[in-house]
């Protein structure tokens, strides 16, 4: 069975949900089936938010939350202190974090790989706002290889509510700057 389950952790307003949607679009363009959906706590800017995504080579029928992710993506470094982002991760999974720190400094007992990128700085440089969702998708493509970066850029251009080119550039820069550590 091919199914890959992904969990995004972000804060309301950072675009974690949009990141999952863009990923679903990119996966679909590469010929697979995809599903992406959010789980909000309080409907409030800054509140911790999760988004889930599933990738499979056949239509996806299951709709419960993702409890055993293969990949975990963290859009906001402050969440590492507040939320157990690696909860339920499958053995050999991949953790991708937006942070200034290096992969060696991020703990993940069961991970096969840890990837980090300073998406906030990239977003501020290119977009002028700390919305890290498109940049983090570049990191996702690099660390997991589940989608080609070209497809991701294409989906970003198509689905960005604003500044499609800048968002694509942010993802591209993140793709090259992401540090991946095999654990």
């Amino acid at each position: 069975m091919f199914l890959r389950e992904i969990r995004f952790h972000g804060r309301g307003g950072q675009g974690a949900v949009t990141a999952a949607q863009i990923l679903a679009d990119a996966v679909f363009r590469e010929g697979k089936y995809s599903q992406a959906f959010p789980f909000f706590g309080a409907e409030r800017r800054g509140a911790p938010v999760m988004a889930f995504a599933r990738i499979d080579d056949r239509p996806i029928r299951v709709r419960s939350h993702v409890y055993e992710p293969d990949y975990v993506v963290v859009l906001d470094p402050t969440l590492l202190e507040v939320v157990k982002v690696t909860e339920g991760m499958r053995e050999g999974g991949i953790l991708i974090v937006n942070t200034e720190r290096n992969p060696e400094d991020i703990a993940c007992e069961t991970c096969s790989k840890v990837a980090t990128v300073d998406a906030t700085t990239i977003a501020l440089d290119i977009l002028g706002v700390p919305i890290t969702n498109t940049a983090i998708l570049g990191a996702f493509a690099k660390a997991t290889g589940e989608v080609k970066i070209e497809t991701v850029l294409d989906s970003i251009r198509r689905m960005s509510p604003a500044k499609p080119e800048e968002n694509a550039r942010a993802a591209e820069r993140a793709y090259s700057e992401t540090k991946v550590l095999e654990v």
């Binding site: 679009d25 995809s34 959906f37 959010p38 789980f39 709709r63």
Partner: peptide, 8 residues
């Protein structure tokens, strides 16, 4: 949410 906000 399960359908309304789920992308497929």
């Amino acid at each position: 949410f399960t359908l309304s906000h789920t992308y497929e």
